[in-house]
Design a protein around this nucleic acid. Structure first.
Lengths: 205, 205
DNA sequence: AAATATACTAAACATTGTTTATATTATTAC
DNA sequence: GTAATAATATAAACAATGTTTAGTATATTT
């Protein structure tokens, strides 16, 4: 009976419908300021209907976060093409900063806002970021294996490099860079410069 | 007439009273989960009274944030005693990580949560962090001036070092380090190790 | 055609931040 | 000392939120 399959498909379609509206609103208005009623209005259903497809608002955000990591993984594979692992690492880092600067609101939901992490069950794992992390980690591992970067092991390398990139982006997104009085025009450059400078120091010549 | 001075003092005392309760609750329950009614209950006043002393919840959080930076500045001055600027930089960085790990909830309000930044007027500046930043920036400047660290200028150096430290702390606080599957026991060590490793690379020998 | 499951919604619930109108208290002016 | 005035505090209301419940249509199965 293909009828239950059709129902399944309709259900998936409805979920996509909801996520599409939610994504747009979370990005444009922010997570907290977007109401379930608002999303319901946008898709022309009642608020209660959303709860037939998603347990709560956090679970909704979890799927939006997933969408964000899909975007990022696509960017990573498009951009990190160099066969030389260290050069590829540079490409990845630039892409990461670029993504964070061009999609600040989405980056916020992916890496800063805590609520989506509440949607993960105790026994489950956070799998949303796994594709992006695999790409990044693979590249770092190769760099370490071939003795291209100044790190004792790949784990520490990944932690440090990610830490640097995320630190710069999140200080900016959370408005804390204000204190540094950087002029807004060259802020972009400053972040890229910091990462470049870091990757230079990391490289074994 | 000392009467208006007494009123001023009473007003300040009441504000301290409110902030004390708010700080405890924000740290223990989180900002979002703490209600004005809850704070009012704790200090045994009506909710509306709080609005006679603070414009809104964000302004309340702004003062709690200020308290956090006072704590951090105290730690900085206690700990960063070495006369050699590079060694002092190490002390400062260790203290920063220590503060972030031992006071995660407070660190969150100081550097991650966006709401306190809404309390700043358009024409005003974010002054809460100014003491801590001055200490840090002064140390970095001295390191650059004396040619102790591998940076073209102090601004870029400060941005990078802060970025690294904050990146590690905030990835942890925002639960995103989950993906790295670090065992919880050595997580602390890993962060210190990453920062140490970074400062080693930065040093000009 | 009757019974059952599915999809949806209106209305209600409990909470939230914040405002308004009102009462109480302290200060000033006569 | 008493009336006018300013301050402090609150109860009640407002508008909005996430979520649940009870009930109604619509499909599907028997």
């Amino acid at each position: 009976m293909g009828i239950s399959e059709r129902k399944m498909r309709e259900r998936e379609e409805m979920k996509r419908n909801i996520i599409k509206a939610a994504t747009a609103m979370f990005i444009n208005e922010g997570y907290e300021k977007t109401s379930i009623r608002g999303i319901a209005d946008k898709i022309e259903y009642s608020p209660a209907t959303i709860y037939l497809y998603y347990k709560d608002k956090d679970e909704l955000l979890y799927d939006v976060q997933h969408y964000g990591f899909e975007q990022m993984a696509t960017l990573f594979t498009e951009v990190a093409t160099d066969l030389h692992p260290y050069k590829r690492l540079r490409q990845l880092c630039r892409a990461y900063i670029q993504f964070g600067m061009e999609n600040s609101a989405l980056y916020d939901l992916m890496f800063i806002v805590k609520d989506p992490m509440n949607a993960i069950n105790q026994e489950d794992q956070w799998t949303n970021s796994v594709d992006c992390f695999t790409i990044f980690m693979g590249c770092v591992q190769e760099c370490v294996d071939k003795g291209l970067i100044r790190f004792p092991d790949a784990r520490l390398a990944a932690l440090s490099i990610w830490g640097m990139g995320h630190g710069l982006l999140s200080l900016n997104i959370c408005c804390r860079l204000q204190i540094m009085q950087l002029d807004q025009a060259h802020l972009n450059e400053a972040l890229y410069l910091a990462v470049d400078n870091y990757l230079n120091m990391v490289e074994i010549l």
